[in-house]
């Protein structure tokens, strides 16, 4: 366990040294704040700038608090996923490509520790950043459109957060599987997109798909009731995350690091 913590500390220190610990939370914060703010101020900005022909009536309906928060979730679902993939695509593949993985794994380090320490450090950064972003969105939604009960906000936050965790774990999996960071990043984004399409297209058959967590979080916010399939979907996602982590270690252990 001590050894695991040594690896974990290195990951944390690396995130500090390469400023991930600053730019990732800031980006999420920005993504979270931008939608409530623009939804509220855009009509005013357009008004103030003028430029529209006389007599144009702009009628942009203000979103409900739930819709406002969901717009931010939508941002995390596209740009957030992109950032996570970019941030983590090289975490194993890059170290393998440079050869530094060889230096580390020639020491008596279990491969499972090596992968899980990376996962844990990324988990903390992703959740902190995502929390900062969601909190910003909740706050501006609250003062601009009306407050969402904090409990409901938290439930939505956790449900959707598990999908982001799934994407994050998948990126680490691809990164352990492949030697090219770029390909790992591309594949994890592609998988997330395809999974989203397939799940919403066949949502009657695969109600438990991890990609539907976003939909369920949204339905919960708008209707204040959890859809029936939420719990199975959460369980499947949690199971998939654990399985991906085990696969990552297993796949990586089989690889010959050199050559």
């Amino acid at each position: 366990m001590n050894l695991w913590f040594v690896l974990f500390k290195k990951e944390c220190l690396e995130m500090v040294r390469n400023f991930k610990v600053i730019w990732v939370p800031l980006t999420f914060l920005f993504l979270g704040a931008i939608d409530p703010l623009t939804a509220y101020y855009m009509p005013k900005i357009v008004d103030a700038l003028g430029g529209l022909p006389e007599g144009t009536v702009i009628e942009i309906p203000l979103p409900s608090p739930g819709e406002s928060l969901l717009m931010s979730v939508g941002q995390f679902d596209t740009l957030g996923v992109l950032i996570i993939a970019l941030m983590l695509m090289g975490t194993v593949a890059g170290e393998r490509k440079s050869g530094v993985a060889e230096m580390v794994l020639v020491k008596p380090v279990p491969v499972g520790f090596y992968i899980s320490a990376k996962w844990a450090a990324a988990l903390i950064l992703v959740w902190l950043s995502y929390f900062a972003g969601m909190l910003a969105s909740w706050y501006y939604t609250g003062i601009l459109f009306g407050w969402i009960p904090f409990g409901e906000f938290l439930a939505c936050f956790f449900i959707y957060g598990l999908w982001l965790t799934f994407v994050m774990t998948m990126t680490i999996f691809y990164s352990s599987l492949l030697k090219s960071p770029g390909l790992a990043g591309f594949l994890s984004i592609a998988t997330a997109v395809v999974l989203g399409f397939v799940s919403s297209g066949f949502s009657h058959w695969i109600k438990w798909s991890p990609a539907l967590l976003k939909t369920y979080a949204g339905e919960y916010l708008l209707k204040s009731a959890l859809p029936d399939a939420t719990v199975p979907a959460l369980l499947v996602t949690a199971g998939a995350i654990i399985a991906l982590l085990i696969f990552s270690s297993a796949v990586f252990r089989k690889k010959e690091l050199a050559g």
Partner: peptide, 30 residues
């Protein structure tokens, strides 16, 4: 692996670490 000290032909390190940090890290890993 505990019994082995290995120097590859082209040693690679975490560039963002200092020399001292890397050695301490390697020591703890070993």
């Amino acid at each position: 692996r505990r019994l082995i000290g290995y120097l590859p032909q082209h040693p690679v390190f975490y560039e963002w670490m200092t020399g001292r940090e890397f050695l301490e890290y390697a020591g703890e890993l070993a």
